[in-house]
Write a protein that binds this DNA or RNA. Structure first.
Lengths: 224, 224
DNA sequence: CTTCAACAATCAAAATATTCATAGATACAG
DNA sequence: CTGTATCTATGAATATTTTGATTGTTGAAG
């Protein structure tokens, strides 16, 4: 999974870079339109994160150029700019999604995943960590080729934590992500804890536990 | 729940009118900008469905005028027009949602519901049919004041069928609406049937069945 | 070093959802 | 009319999710 990050703010670019690398993507940063166009021409990226306000031109130019090559690359526009007009133009020109700065990295991760998935069917179809392989298509997990059976919720939680590995994910984030809008902030329950517990129990048989931490007062984290 | 339909195509207007009336809304049709403005000034509507191409002016004028009165009315623009530019302007001026013609009436129903809900909290908070009262906030159902306990899925199915009463809803529609994107077209199962069955059993104690039909080869329908 | 309060883990029970196998109903061909 | 294929209903088994009560942990205040 190759991602091109086109963003002149180096701090932000680096932050996104780290995050996406951690999430298992192979990333490359460019800071200008020119470099971006060159990268796109010479390499085969699955997705591009495109800032609009670049020093040597408007990001839209890059977007247009990319679309002309009828490449299957997904493009997510990252914009701090004035809002809707840009959005429209962008969608018109073929951006697949938008994120307005500032954005949460987990949000970026989710959008990126969705967009790539939409793009070429199922390119991101598995995640692996510490010997476990998650096949996202069919909700299967295995540990060194040996399948183990997780329930859907357990799988969802595992996947989300792996997708955001090295980051602490709060119970609220998990709830929102996995249960969607369903429940009216019913967070007086401990069902997350219970699912996590059951998940851990199943993973534990296959030696794990130390990289699947509970962060007190915050949530859970799976580290690489 | 009062809805103003502003649409010069009388056939379409009538169709939408019928549908929304069936869905429990109180509706009124106007065919021109002028009438629309008059209606809006003299009555208190919860939402307006606004066609853009009106004979005596652009629907946007109506939208602008409405927004100047800082009314809490939700506005959904119905447009057959050229697309994005209109959309932008519309969202800019304060439309709450858009539908491009042609659209499915069930889609309209869903958007309308969402928009009104967003607007003033929970205006559409209950549905009633044949003595049953569905309270959408807290997933409660009662039959002539006597509460009965449906599970979440049962409630969802009941609600969706009632929301689309007098129309046949296919199993696929139900699946997509209630399970969302969750399952990868897993329609080899009969879980809808089972839930419908259990739902019926619970409703049946309180005399019903005849207005809750199975439409062979298509799906289910609840009629008024 | 205790004690307390907040947080998390655990277990078992209850509620819910889903699957599966089978029976019933309906339409259509012959 | 009868047989057959297709669709739907049903009941029971199984799996999953959620709740609730209880116990263990941790960190801060005294």
């Amino acid at each position: 999974m190759n991602i091109l990050i086109v963003e002149d703010n180096k701090e932000l670019a680096a932050e996104v870079y780290d995050f996406l690398c951690n999430a298992g993507y192979v990333c490359k940063i460019t800071h200008t339109c020119e470099d971006a166009l060159e990268e796109v021409a010479s390499n085969d990226y699955d997705a591009m994160l495109l800032d609009l306000g670049l020093p040597d031109g408007d990001g839209f130019e890059v977007l247009q150029a990319v679309r002309k090559t009828k490449s299957k690359m997904a493009v997510i526009v990252l914009t701090a700019r004035g809002e809707l007009d840009d959005r429209i133009n962008g969608l018109h020109l073929g951006a697949d999604d938008y994120l307005t700065k500032p954005f949460a990295l987990t949000e970026l991760s989710a959008r990126l995943f969705a967009v790539i998935r939409r793009m070429h069917g199922f390119t991101v179809n598995s995640l692996s960590i510490h010997g476990f392989l998650l096949q996202l298509q069919d909700y299967k997990v295995s540990y060194n080729e040996v399948p183990l059976s997780l329930t859907k919720k357990e799988f969802d939680i595992f996947q989300y934590l792996v997708l955001n590995k090295n980051r602490v994910i709060t119970r609220l984030q998990l709830t929102e992500h996995i249960w969607g809008d369903i429940l009216e902030v019913n967070s007086d329950s401990n069902f997350i804890d219970v699912h996590v517990r059951n998940l851990r129990k199943k993973l534990d048989k296959h030696r794990s536990i130390d990289w699947f931490e509970t962060v007190r007062n915050v949530g859970y984290r799976i580290s690489e």
